[in-house]
Amino acid sequence: MTRRILAPLALAAASVLALAGCAGSAGPAATSDDGKLQVVASTNVYGDIASAIGGDLVDVQSIITSFAQDPHSYEASARDQLTVSRAGLIIENGGGYDAFMDAIIESSGTEAPVITAVEFSHDWPGNDGHGDHDHDADATDAASPSTSSATGGGSGTETSEASTDHDHAGHDHVEGFNEHVWYDPHTIAHVAEEIAHELGELDAANVATYQANYETFAAGIEGIEGSLDALKAQHAGEKVFVTEPVPLYLTAAAGLENATPAAFSEAVEEGQDVPAATLLDAGRIISSGDVRVLIVNAQTGGAETDEVISRAKAAGIPVLEFTELVPDGDTYLTWMQANVAALADTLAR
């Protein structure tokens, strides 16, 4: 199976460049010409969050901003390496999702602090808490699904302390862990808090501003969690089918049950052929009448994805498209709230 990359509503080929050259390193508190702290993020998801926390005090550059680029297979350019080498703070997803970041962090020689989002997930192997930067304990702490449990292959939420030792060589894909943690608002609250903390370390004169911006952002997260609680109260236990595990943290927080065969979503995500028996099983599940909504990744597709979409439409099951990047005109908060609202509207039909 070919995992094709799609631009919004249309096919688009991902444009990738080979990594070349070696840029010099910069100090950990690198600033732009106008004195702003330079923040580099792997995708515009983390770039937007950094902008929300840093405001006018930071200059944020996101390496991946186009729906035609796939972080899983992105090949960094010499310009990307130069950008990272000049950063005062670096933010990546980790967990094998944006492995190109680890490569350019290592090759650039940067000494900038690196925030790795997956380490703030309760599901991250060995994570039993969030240290000194603990998000409101009373906030919704949805059981964030690992890849295995979220795709019907197991349960449990292993936990351990988030490491502050950024061993970039250890950020390969972790079997059984769903790395798409930006769809878990609770995890993102911790990431945002860490961004505020690191910016305050780099720019002590503006600690109060970073903290105030974090609190505003955290209030937005609480609003999303409140919407998820309301959705859970109305639709807990209802089944969804996903072509990839991208939105599963969000659907789990909404109390929805994932009906997707693990082998199906894993194969689609890896760009592999879905086993014939698994494809038949998926068809039976969709045609059973138990699935309330099909969620697809709007940025990728393939023959098997097209087939389950056709089956869902034939069975009268609504199809929702979720993305891996913040759409133009949105912020992380408005985008995620819109995803929850679309899910609620669809399930209310």
Results as ranks from 00 to 15, higher is better:
272 Q>L: 02
28 P>D: 15
349 R>H: 10
227 S>P: 01
326 V>N: 03
54 G>K: 08
334 T>C: 11
184 D>C: 05
266 E>I: 02
30 A>D: 03
72 H>A: 11
240 V>G: 06
128 D>K: 15
147 T>H: 12
142 A>K: 05
295 I>P: 05
140 T>K: 12
120 F>V: 07
161 E>L: 13
132 D>M: 12
44 N>L: 15
170 G>F: 00
161 E>I: 08
35 G>R: 06
165 D>K: 03
58 V>M: 10
147 T>I: 14
160 S>M: 13
60 V>N: 08
179 E>N: 07
211 Q>C: 09
166 H>P: 04
325 L>E: 12
215 E>F: 04
308 V>F: 10
71 P>T: 02
48 D>G: 14
7 A>E: 13
180 H>D: 13
249 Y>M: 02
323 T>H: 10
344 A>P: 01
327 P>C: 09
34 D>H: 07
344 A>E: 12
73 S>C: 01
4 R>D: 04
163 S>K: 10
218 A>L: 03
149 S>G: 09
324 E>D: 14
69 Q>D: 12
346 T>Q: 09
270 E>N: 12
162 A>C: 06
73 S>Y: 03
214 Y>A: 13
26 A>R: 05
33 D>V: 09
167 D>I: 05
143 A>E: 10
68 A>C: 09
246 V>N: 05
23 A>G: 06
21 G>Q: 08
164 T>Y: 02
278 T>H: 04
244 E>K: 06
182 W>M: 08
311 R>C: 00
57 L>F: 14
305 T>W: 03
52 A>F: 06
85 S>E: 05
22 C>M: 07
135 H>G: 07
260 T>Y: 00
64 I>T: 08
313 K>M: 11
289 G>C: 00
315 A>C: 01
177 F>L: 10
115 I>D: 10
74 Y>D: 02
298 A>M: 12
25 S>D: 04
48 D>C: 11
136 D>E: 15
104 I>A: 04
209 T>M: 11
80 D>S: 09
281 D>R: 03
188 I>G: 05
46 Y>G: 12
110 T>N: 08
249 Y>L: 02
122 H>Q: 15
336 M>S: 06
195 I>F: 05
121 S>Q: 04
313 K>P: 00
282 A>Q: 02
38 Q>V: 15
343 L>A: 14
133 H>G: 08
30 A>Q: 12
25 S>L: 02
230 A>F: 10
326 V>T: 06
250 L>I: 01
252 A>G: 03
334 T>G: 08
6 L>S: 07
349 R>K: 07
27 G>E: 00
246 V>W: 01
244 E>Y: 07
304 E>Q: 02
31 T>L: 09
213 N>G: 13
185 P>G: 07
56 D>I: 04
338 A>R: 15
320 L>P: 01
13 A>P: 00
347 L>C: 10
259 A>S: 06
339 N>S: 06
257 E>M: 00
77 S>I: 07
124 W>P: 03
72 H>W: 04
98 D>C: 14
303 A>D: 01
216 T>N: 14
181 V>K: 11
150 A>M: 11
83 T>M: 09
349 R>N: 11
344 A>F: 04
32 S>V: 10
301 G>F: 15
114 V>W: 07
252 A>Q: 10
272 Q>W: 00
348 A>W: 01
134 D>F: 04
114 V>Q: 13
40 V>M: 03
121 S>C: 06
188 I>M: 13
14 A>H: 05
185 P>R: 01
286 I>H: 03
203 D>S: 07
